[in-house]
Amino acid sequence: MPSETPQAEVGPTGCPHRSGPHSAKGSLEKGSPEDKEAKEPLWIRPDAPSRCTWQLGRPASESPHHHTAPAKSPKILPDILKKIGDTPMVRINKIGKKFGLKCELLAKCEFFNAGGSVKDRISLRMIEDAERDGTLKPGDTIIEPTSGNTGIGLALAAAVRGYRCIIVMPEKMSSEKVDVLRALGAEIVRTPTNARFDSPESHVGVAWRLKNEIPNSHILDQYRNASNPLAHYDTTADEILQQCDGKLDMLVASVGTGGTITGIARKLKEKCPGCRIIGVDPEGSILAEPEELNQTEQTTYEVEGIGYDFIPTVLDRTVVDKWFKSNDEEAFTFARMLIAQEGLLCGGSAGSTVAVAVKAAQELQEGQRCVVILPDSVRNYMTKFLSDRWMLQKGFLKEEDLTEKKPWWWHLRVQELGLSAPLTVLPTITCGHTIEILREKGFDQAPVVDEAGVILGMVTLGNMLSSLLAGKVQPSDQVGKVIYKQFKQIRLTDTLGRLSHILEMDHFALVV
């Protein structure tokens, strides 16, 4: 994948999101292997301009796509893939009243899908469409860049269908997702969380590099694949309309690839034109409109599966009536509230959605109805927002919020430890010299600072030695090549209790 991002070429006709291997024109390309080798690009942008032909009021008969309808489940399912879809609609009884809503608040519980998330729908649909058009064949390999849930859905379907599955996901995604993927037989590649989507090191860039190296491999490409919004247009939206008897006044959905909100909203605009569509985008993402909503100094966020630093091709923002931004604290607070007060075992993005819903639905009156999409299960986040310690460490809970008995030293300040200034190293000294210094002084790690004293990161003896043994660096290389740029900081005025929580999850903390 090139470091400079080429513009994806656009073909003359058809839909841009065809499933299957992508040609340089962004659509299915038939021909000899030699032709494909000559024409197939190194990668295709996940934010390529959409060429979708959908228009409100256009006859369904003019759609270029294969459409399906929700099917009634048999008493005995032939395999677990038949437990994807037909998820329950559940009334939220307490939270709406707590925040003064007059309307009825309903939750579409997508964590009841077989793999635990709304992404099971698009995973199965992308595979079925690729099999139907002859792209996927027995023994082929599926590769997908994902925040985890699409990966789980694909790995689940691949396990049943017999495909090899490789999932490329950023490091910030939970260990629970990784464990589930491994249990399903998927191979996992992790990428830096802070890598831009168009960087060769991003999950998108690495996935395309693997595709170019592995024979008979395919990126189904949830960011561009029409099967993504079509899955929701054909099934999720129809289920909502049936469950609500066609009567709903507002739908609120958090947005990642945009397939969920695009597919549902398009069908609702056709069948229930008075329904307002509300999009939820986390602070630090750029999906919301108008652009002024996205202006923030924050560039990272903890909530998973929603928000991006690019506009995915499948996201149709014209069908969203209003956007709201959400933050991590309210997302996790509301997710825990949904679990504790409503018994809905949902993930953090569901918290984002409901946090926005109780604001947006203030305009609705008694007798009206708001539906929220709860995308995934708490299963993926047992060591994250479900953990009091994690919430404390991230600053989303305060010590006084917890009532468990603490040891005698818990409320003492870090400054009472009488710490001395640490050994520091410059980023320009060599790895070999740094190892000598650390061994001589008896230290395992040291902060790396520039000549102005600005902290650049941390270097550890173990990481340097393993990097040297693996051949990633040489003793003569500058130590700046092996620094940890993500590390926890703590102030002298913070409590030892807070430091204790940090050290339970990290090997060190830097006192500043």
Rank of each mutant, 00 (worst) to 15 (best):
C15D: 13
R18I: 11
S254G: 07
V168W: 02
W208R: 08
L230A: 04
S23Q: 11
P88E: 04
S202V: 02
F99R: 04
T150E: 01
S227A: 11
C275S: 14
G57T: 11
N113G: 09
L81G: 14
I152C: 02
A158G: 07
L230K: 07
R182I: 07
S227H: 10
K82S: 07
K267H: 08
N194S: 13
H22M: 03
G153L: 02
F112R: 01
P70V: 04
C109K: 03
L210Q: 06
D179E: 09
I80P: 02
L184K: 00
L77Q: 12
S19M: 09
L136G: 05
K39P: 12
R121I: 01
G258M: 04
K75C: 12
S123D: 05
L106C: 11
K30E: 11
E9P: 10
I264H: 03
P78S: 15
E34G: 13
H232R: 03
G259V: 01
R18E: 12
K137P: 08
E62N: 14
L106P: 09
D221E: 09
L101T: 04
D245M: 08
G57A: 15
T68N: 14
A8H: 11
E239L: 00
A130P: 01
G259R: 00
M169F: 02
A107N: 01
D245R: 02
I167D: 08
D179Q: 02
S123A: 12
C15A: 06
V189E: 07
K177M: 01
R161Q: 08
E34H: 10
S227K: 10
S202H: 05
Y233V: 01
L220F: 03
C275W: 08
G20S: 07
R182K: 11
Y163S: 00
N228L: 02
S217L: 01
L42T: 11
P273F: 06
K108T: 02
T262F: 01
N212Y: 04
K271I: 12
R209I: 09
P33N: 10
L184F: 05
R276Y: 10
F112C: 01
A71N: 11
S254Q: 06
C272M: 12
K75Y: 07
V10Q: 09
P21A: 07
N149Q: 02
E270V: 13
A265W: 02
G14N: 10
H65V: 03
E144P: 02
T53S: 12
P12V: 07
S199G: 05
